[in-house]
Structures are given as structure tokens and as C-alpha cells.
């Protein structure tokens, strides 16, 4: 394995990443750089490799070849999900996955930045500091009323927020959000956009999204993926006028 020195300053650095499933190349020599503090949106048609890219970054899928570095030093292709999560990379799935049998409070409690060791978890203590942090997060995602409810009883949009709240409370450096507004009402979508912009003030966020109105409302740099590789990158106006992008995606 070659040990090229990744770009300095880049928070997330993917170079030449290839992943194939039984002959089908989900990622084909993908290279992508996300700078610290950036808000990045990634768009692309179905099968372009958006979710696989997130799988690679979060350790769910191992790349067949290529390099994946976090903060220039941590080789994500060699770590497992829990280790990557503990580096400060959080992920929100396409479908909301909260722990439905736990209460809203307990969901946040598990996500709280805290020791993850099995012994420490077994012998964990309750402190007012932790309670306060959970209460603050509840207020920020607007679920203070629902604190004692089982998460399974929340509405679809509330589950999405709870999940974002869980990423928030862990103090992640990098958040990967997979279609955060899928299935939301227009009003919920607007609120989510505000929440993301608010979150982006003090962390790096990568958003995968189909909803072009939502992407536009975020006003961030856009990367277009196609057939497992980057097709175009730039402002939303730049990519919307890009000839190839129109052919494969926007102008269908």
C-alpha cells in the first residue's frame, strides 16, 4: 500500500477509491476532498455511489482500492465503525433509524459524548452536566415535550430531528447526512435546512440529497457523482449549467 501524504488541512480525503459488488463498480476511482468547516452537498442519480461513499467513510464497507484519510492521518479504510465514530465522524442514515424501544431521552443519552467502553457503560453515573447537555439538545431539535416518549411513537420528521440531535450531542467534527429531508413536509424541510445551517457554523457537514430546492437553500458547494466518480463540482449554479450534469441527471 502506498503511503502518499494526504493534502494538508483537508478534513476528509478520498483518493482513487474503488468498491465493486460482484462486477458492478459502485465507486469507480472516486476522489473527493472536504475541507474543515465546510458544508458540502453531494447529488447524483440513483446508483451514483452516494451511499456507498458514506459506507466507505464510516467503515461499513471496505474499499477494494484507494485511500481514505481523516484529518490527514487516520486511515479510515483500516478502522471499524465504532472506532471511526469515536474519531468524530457521525452519520445519519437515509431512513431514520432511532432506537424505537428507547425513549427520546435515552436515545440522546446513548449518543452523548462519553466513554464508550463496556465497563464504563455498565458503571456509568448520572451527573447534572450530562442532564443539562441532553436538555439543551432536546431544546435545539424541538423535542423537549417528547423526552419520555418511546422514539418509535414519534412522527417521521421528529425521528429525523432526533437523529440529527443524536449527531449533535456527540460533538462530531464531521457529520454525514444521507437525505435528511426525505419524506418531510415542506415546512419540516425548511426547518431542517435552518437546523443544518445552524449546525454548520461549528462543524463540517456533508449532505447527500435529491431535493434540488433543499440543496439550493443550503447554498453550499455541490459535488455531482455519476457512476461512482465525480462528474462536476462547484456552486449550485455552476453544476446546474454543466452540460454533462444536465445530460445524466438534471435534464432527464
Amino acid at each position: 500500500m502506498k503511503t502518499a501524504t494526504p493534502l494538508t488541512g483537508a478534513l476528509l480525503y478520498l483518493n482513487g477509491v474503488t468498491v465493486s459488488f460482484e462486477g458492478f463498480k459502485a465507486l469507480n476511482d472516486l476522489s473527493l476532498v472536504v475541507e474543515e468547516g465546510e458544508l458540502r452537498t453531494i447529488i447524483g442519480p440513483n446508483g451514483a455511489g452516494k451511499t456507498t461513499m458514506m459506507d466507505v467513510v464510516t467503515g461499513k464497507t471496505r474499499p477494494d482500492s484507494g485511500e481514505v484519510f481523516f484529518r490527514g492521518t487516520a486511515d479510515l479504510s483500516r478502522l471499524d465503525e465504532a472506532e471511526i465514530a469515536n474519531l468524530g465522524i457521525g452519520r445519519k442514515f437515509q431512513r431514520p433509524t432511532v432506537f424505537e424501544n428507547l425513549t427520546v431521552f435515552e436515545n440522546l443519552e446513548l449518543a452523548l459524548a462519553d466513554s464508550r467502553g463496556t465497563w464504563r457503560t455498565l458503571l456509568a453515573h448520572s451527573t447534572s452536566d450530562r442532564r443539562d447537555r441532553i436538555a439543551a439538545a432536546l431544546a435545539r431539535i424541538g423535542l423537549s415535550e417528547q423526552t419520555g416518549q418511546p422514539a418509535g411513537a414519534l412522527s417521521h420528521g421528529q425521528k429525523q430531528w432526533l437523529e440529527i440531535g443524536m449527531l449533535l450531542i456527540h460533538d462530531r467534527t464531521l457529520l454525514l447526512l444521507d437525505e435528511p429531508v426525505a419524506g418531510m413536509t415542506d415546512r419540516e424541510t425548511e426547518e431542517t435546512a435552518e437546523l443544518i445551517l445552524d449546525l454548520a457554523k461549528d462543524r463540517t457537514i456533508v449532505v447527500v440529497e435529491h431535493d434540488m430546492a433543499f440543496v439550493r437553500s443550503l447554498g453550499a458547494r455541490v459535488t455531482v457523482l455519476h457512476e461512482g466518480a465525480v462528474l462536476a463540482e462547484g456552486s449550485i449554479d455552476h453544476v446546474q449549467n454543466h452540460q454533462r450534469v444536465i445530460e445524466v441527471y438534471l435534464g432527464r
Binding site: F21, T51, F93
Partner: peptide, 8 residues
């Protein structure tokens, strides 16, 4: 092997 096989 693939995404469908280990869908979560």
C-alpha cells in the same frame, strides 16, 4: 454480496 444483502 452487496448492498441489498446486508441492507440495514
Amino acid at each position: 454480496k452487496g448492498r441489498t444483502a446486508e441492507a440495514e
